[in-house]
């Protein structure tokens, strides 16, 4: 079993109004060293190892459903899932 962590962020060219609002709040709290905030999504998938190559399966899922590549970028990490 693998644990796949997918990080989804808005593309550089896309404005992130939520991130701007959060940065405004941080500045009002006097964290003026913050120069940019981008808000994204984090997905964690448990994937059973089968005959299909895990990288191509994850990429396919990301491009077909998990992200919208018109507005979002993604990256992912594959780890051994620790059984409980």
């Amino acid at each position: 079993m693998k644990k796949v962590k997918v990080y989804v962020t808005l593309r550089e060219s896309v404005l992130d109004p939520q991130g701007s609002a959060v940065m405004g709040a941080l500045h009002s709290m006097e964290y003026n060293e913050v120069k940019d905030v981008r808000i994204g999504k984090f997905l964690e998938l448990q994937i059973e190892e089968g005959t299909r190559d895990i990288d191509s399966v994850v990429k396919e899922m990301c491009e077909k459903l998990l992200t919208n590549t018109v507005i979002e970028d993604y990256r992912y990490e594959v780890e051994e899932a620790v059984s409980k």
Partner: peptide, 17 residues
């Protein structure tokens, strides 16, 4: 329709949230 690729582009969160 945009998600399905029948129309180009995407709809984002309103600028004023």
């Amino acid at each position: 329709l945009t998600e399905a690729g029948l129309l180009p582009g995407a709809l984002l969160r309103n600028k004023n949230l």
